[in-house]
Design a protein around this nucleic acid. Structure first.
Length: 471
DNA sequence: GCGGATCAG
DNA sequence: ATGGCTGATCCGC
């Protein structure tokens, strides 16, 4: 409930300031328990998570209901937090079910078509994630109140609301939903932005000052998340509460306040033209079409293990999904244009990154906006005993303590050493690297036959290539 | 791709 | 009439 509403209803109410550090710490306590039930659970927010307990139920030979009862009891005993849960055949149904016995309860919907259809029949559309205030009213206006009502109106839905909405509604009717559950960090971020509301403001200088400040706020978040943006979006809310956005594509990917400001000022000027005497109550900046500033790590790229990484042995889901983890695909995911502009940007980038590094300690990690994405906690139950690593004599990186694996690694490492020497000696990677910068062995392993347009730049002369390959 | 709008948490 | 902020997605053009 909004604070000022509560205060009106309950004038003696004492309000305590927010403390996200506390909430995040508590959430981590809870997640340490969740990870024992599904190491690949998905945090949907600070207080919500999806778990696939199929494996847990099998290995512990218990019902989903028992497993979830036990999970909730364990969460309560260890953290004093009560939680509600829904158990169902997919994420959409589980979410709905989790609201059935709130607070501190659970509800299971049997994985049975007729049971599910019966459940949907009387379910108000608004209960489904994705149906909000507006869509609910629109559906209501044509006579659709429950998910059961949807089918009778199927011939109108696509025409009225579009094909996507039609597909969505039919899935609601049938109780269909996603079954894939994966750690939050495996989802790709699409934008980074910041906005703020203030007392009505007008005037060239004041608005530019506010824009400058907004740009500085955004730089902090770009720095923290490690992205640049190819597109820059300015958002304003007029004193009339009307919202407008304007966007530009700067000549280069941006993240520094100076650039964010420089390229957004013309948009503000345009708005001042469009709305003479512009009066604002909100201003925001957002970067989209993100480019990661985290360079593909050479060690990861060459397939070396990271010391803290645990080999996941007992979970078929984990091993199955491993190859789709984004960190293994970083090369493939690099946008083409990145290469196109790489050489031109290189010098500038170098300066900026040096500056970024020198200022890294000054970043205030407590007061930032934006979604917190933390990796799932490590599972207590498969904590590895200390010193279970052998250091490779060639690359000096820790390796698995299996005779066979270790020897295979050394073979690989020696061949890499040969490649490295060859490249360094000739300073011309044409033998080992294709023109698109993808090492041939990576291509072969990838095997997806992904095509990349030939940009025709010279590998040996590109400073980025030098750094990416053997940095 | 742009700009508006809806939705979730 | 119950706000502000961050981020995602969809639609029409």
């Amino acid at each position: 409930m909004a604070g000022f509403v509560a205060k009106k209803l309950c004038p003696q109410l004492i309000q305590i300031p927010l403390n996200f550090e506390k909430y995040t710490a508590k959430a981590q306590e809870v997640r340490k328990i969740l990870v024992e039930y599904d190491p690949r659970f998905e945090s949907a927010s600070i207080d919500e998570a999806y778990l696939n307990v199929t494996n847990y139920c099998e290995t512990h030979n218990i019902d989903p209901e028992e497993a979830v009862e036990q999970l909730r009891r364990e969460v309560y005993e260890k953290t004093k937090i009560t939680v509600s849960a829904g158990i169902a055949a997919n994420a959409k149904l589980a979410k709905i079910c989790s609201n059935m016995n709130k607070p501190n309860g659970q509800f299971r919907l049997a994985n049975d078509r007729n049971v599910i259809l019966a459940f949907m029949r009387d379910l108000p559309t608004r209960k489904v994630n994705g149906v909000g205030r507006v869509f609910e009213r629109e559906l209501d206006a044509i006579g659709v109140k429950t998910c059961g009502d949807i089918y009778a109106y199927r011939q109108y839905l696509a025409k009225l609301f579009g094909e996507k909405a039609f597909q969505f509604l039919m899935q609601c009717h049938l109780g269909l939903g996603r079954t894939k559950v994966q750690p939050a960090e495996e989802y790709e971020r699409k934008s980074v932005g910041t906005e703020s509301t203030f007392a009505d403001m007008s005037g060239h200088v004041k608005l530019r000052d506010k824009l400058r400040w907004t740009a500085e706020e955004l730089e902090k978040d770009m720095r923290r998340t490690g992205f640049k943006g190819r597109t820059l979006v300015l958002k304003v809310k007029l004193h009339t509460y009307e919202v407008f956005t304007r966007q530009v594509i700067p000549p280069k990917a941006v993240w520094l306040a100076d650039d964010l400001y420089k390229y957004s000022v013309p948009m503000l000027a345009k708005l001042e033209q469009d709305f003479p005497g512009l009066r604002l109550r909100l201003m925001g900046l957002r970067c989209t079409h993100l480019v990661s500033m985290k360079k593909p790590d050479t060690m990861t790229f060459f397939g070396f293990k990271n010391r803290p990484e645990q080999p996941s042995n007992d979970d078929p889901e984990t091993s199955k999904c491993k190859d789709s983890a984004p960190e293994n695909d970083q090369w493939e995911n690099w946008p083409d244009a990145e290469f196109e502009e790489a050489a031109r940007e290189e010098q500038q980038e170098e300066l900026e990154e040096l500056e970024a590094l020198s200022q890294l300690e000054e970043v205030d990690l407590r007061r930032h906006h934006g979604k917190e994405i933390l990796p799932n906690p490590k599972r207590e139950s498969d904590a590895t005993p200390e010193e279970e690593w052998w250091d490779c004599p060639i690359c000096l990186r820790p390796q698995a303590t299996s005779e066979k694996e270790f020897n295979e690694h050394i073979d690989l490492c020696l061949s890499r050493q040969t490649i490295r020497e060859a490249v360094q000696a000739t300073a011309q990677g044409e033998q080992q690297f294709s023109r698109d910068g993808t090492p041939d062995f990576k291509k072969a392993r990838n095997g997806s036959g992904q095509k990349r347009k030939d940009r025709g730049f010279v590998v040996a002369g590109d400073p980025k290539q030098r750094r990416l390959c053997f940095g």
